[in-house]
Amino acid sequence: MMSVAIALPDSPPAPGTLCFYYGDERICVERSHRQSKVDRVLIKVQPDCRVLVQAPVHASDEDVLQAVKKRARWIYQQLREFRAQQEHVTQRRYISGESHYYQGKQYQLKVIASPEHKQGVKLLRGSLEVSVREQNPDKVQALLNDWYRHKARDVFARRLDVMLDQALWVTGRPPIRILTMQTQWGSCSPQGRLTLNPHLVKAPRECVDYVILHELCHIAEHNHSERFYRLLKQVMPHYEAVKTRLDAMVGKILT
């Protein structure tokens, strides 16, 4: 007896989401308004495979979809690349022998379990040494996260001081908040406060500089307008290559 496969209907898109098909794949994009006089539609594919679209307020959803479809092949290729990166990511178990990153370099994790040891993390001779009273991966992870957060505060503060010499439009020293985020490396509040992801300290220094400069540019340009990207390119001409490098590391440093 022949069986017939019946495809389940696609779930309705969330509000503000537009969907289209590229071949057999349904691709959904999250639309937001672009606060700019430029009528162009700006498309971004995030490492977590979200597709973001900024479009002028007056543009209809149909017009936005037509613009997105013209870039459908590029969007599909970006999604394939990010998905391929995710497939090769192995979930960390926080046991000795694993590789962990700090400032762009790989370090081997060494877990020392002893009731007499003071619990903490040390960076020694190419390894990250974590001392715990008993074998407990959750405790090892918590200690590492605290260590990364502490290091991030120091590293980000030093790099902000260096980047401020290039960001001549910034008056005063913006405050920094450290916050773990799943889909952002950083953000800038309307008041000029920078929020940075502590996981970013695992990336090379140049990537840290890129994220800080990106957020400092938002103090001058509060959205991703053409002027924003012109400003970013002025202070970091090769920012696109650095962003690509950082995006390629997402699976290695966010797990």
Rank of each mutant, 00 (worst) to 15 (best):
T183Q: 12
A5R: 13
K118R: 12
N136K: 08
A203Y: 05
I176Q: 07
P15G: 08
P12L: 03
R40I: 15
A220D: 09
T255W: 14
P137L: 10
Q184Y: 09
L194F: 02
L128V: 11
Q54F: 02
V170Y: 02
D39V: 07
G23V: 08
A241N: 08
Q106T: 12
E98G: 06
Q85Y: 14
E221I: 02
Q66H: 10
H88F: 11
E30I: 10
G172M: 03
Y21A: 03
L18T: 00
D154F: 06
L194D: 02
E206N: 11
H222Q: 07
V121L: 10
K70I: 04
Q46G: 08
R159G: 01
I43G: 01
A152P: 03
A55I: 06
A157W: 06
A142C: 10
Y102T: 03
K243N: 10
D247T: 05
R227A: 09
I95C: 13
R125W: 12
S36H: 10
G16H: 06
T183A: 05
L8Y: 09
E25H: 14
D10L: 13
N136S: 12
Q106A: 13
H150E: 11
D146S: 10
P204N: 04
L246F: 03
R50D: 15
V132H: 00
S131L: 03
E87V: 05
R80D: 04
H58T: 06
D247S: 12
S11E: 15
K202L: 05
A55K: 01
K110Q: 07
K243I: 13
D138V: 12
M249H: 00
L160F: 09
K69G: 03
Q108R: 11
V162N: 09
Q108T: 12
Q119D: 09
V140K: 00
A84H: 04
E134W: 11
E87H: 13
S96V: 09
C28S: 04
Y22L: 07
G126I: 12
S99T: 08
E221D: 14
A84D: 15
L143W: 00
Y102H: 07
E134C: 03
Y239W: 13
V57M: 14
D247C: 14
R31N: 00
L79W: 06
N223K: 05
S114D: 11
Q119I: 04
I6D: 08
W169Y: 15
L123Q: 14
F228T: 03
Q234T: 04
K118I: 07
R245A: 02
P115F: 09
S127I: 02
D161S: 14
W74D: 10
E116V: 07
E25M: 08
Y21K: 02
E87A: 04
A142S: 14
C28A: 06
G120Y: 14
W185P: 00
S3M: 13
H150C: 11
L42Y: 15
V57N: 11
P204R: 01
S32A: 12
S3Y: 04
N136Y: 07
Y210Q: 02
